[in-house]
Design a protein around this nucleic acid. Structure first.
Lengths: 197, 197
DNA sequence: ATCAAACTTGCACAGTGTGCAAAGTTGCCC
DNA sequence: GGGCAACTTTGCACACTGTGCAAGTTTGAT
């Protein structure tokens, strides 16, 4: 668990995190539209130019946390055995992911609620998902060797999986009923696996 | 079919269309990044300020055609009887939509190919889909009255439908095999309706 | 013909993203 | 340690963007 990180790398990560948090803090405080890149850079103690060295724009900085979480989930999927059927690999990886993450971080909840209102963030988030979709499809395809209609099946399965995660999470965030997020997502995935026709 | 359109409305539509086409033309010719809003406005014979009266940005202008098509598809869905099971309503509406549209417009094909490369367009497109998802979910819910776990089911079905449309269209655009687009989409939808687990 | 409503335009202005070069840090080998 | 290459931060300049505002033009209705 203790990778050899040089001082340089640690500093970079700290700056990236500081910028991310500064963006989130200011956005929650005054609304994303009223936040300038200048203000974020100030808050994080770096120059505007440095902000641009780390993130393409405010939305990108805001979604940094999301990206980290998503890459963890993807690792969980990659860790599943290659002979496991793909849908099972996805649901198992998801369960393990939530188990590893533990309770919901209130910062994250605030972030997601903010997101759902804001078209520009939503757009960026959706674009990120499309990229992820490619990688997931590759993992699925690897667990479905010689299936008659690849790559259609794996691409659709990846899309369905992500759409369901997004939907179930979204509903839970709006209305967290008795169940935990993890259970809500699991229920959504089971729903999605059923036959529609 | 002959709505009373005033001169004003017709002129506005013409301007909007001209801006859309100018954007597409220039983007194909020199790449979207190298296209400025100024250039588009010039090409369409209006001022930069007027461009902004119609579209929020280049991507928005580029996707105008998409929006029109999507709203037609949505109309087809709305036209399906309320007692039809939701998934069937979606697939039927899709079939009718493609029948009504007819052969694939080469302009559109060029546009889609351009899109798939470009993150910023992709982002905008994905955001538009999210909005559409809400409306589709409403139509689905209306055809599923009193289902035990609404709104989860309708939201997921809408998401799955859209994800499948996007995936199937994407694959077909990259590699149009013997089949027509309409058939490719139909095949994708059938795939998505199956049980994964 | 008249006039209000709707549309277009130019201008000003704050904000953004990026190339470039100078200044500052860090890692590493002797 | 000293020295040097690799990397990072910063400031500056610059083209581009999106929007409020007010003045000008066109359209629709009477």
């Amino acid at each position: 668990m203790e990778a050899t990180t040089t001082l340089r790398e640690r500093k970079k990560e700290a700056t990236r995190q500081a910028l991310h948090e500064a963006t989130l803090r200011l956005a929650l405080e005054r609304g994303l539209d009223a936040v300038t890149v200048d203000a974020v850079a100030d808050e994080a103690g770096v120059s505007r130019r440095t902000f641009s060295n780390y993130f393409a724009n405010k939305e990108d900085a805001l979604l940094h946390g999301d990206r980290v979480r998503v890459s963890r989930l993807l690792e969980q999927v990659r860790a599943r055995p290659l002979d496991e059927p793909p849908w099972r690999a996805l649901t198992e990886a998801t369960a393990r992911h939530y188990a590893a993450v533990g309770a919901v971080d209130p910062n994250w909840l605030a972030q997601v609620r903010l997101l759902r209102r804001h078209p520009s963030v939503l757009a960026q988030q959706a674009a990120a998902q499309t990229a992820l979709e490619q990688e997931l499809a590759a993992e699925i395809g690897a667990r479905d060797p010689g299936h008659p209609d690849e790559p259609m099946r794996s691409r659709i399965m990846a899309a369905v999986f992500l759409a369901t995660m997004r939907t179930a999470t979204g509903l839970w965030v709006e209305q967290p009923r008795g169940v935990s997020l993890s259970e809500a997502v699991r229920a959504g995935l089971d729903r999605a696996a059923e036959r529609f026709a």
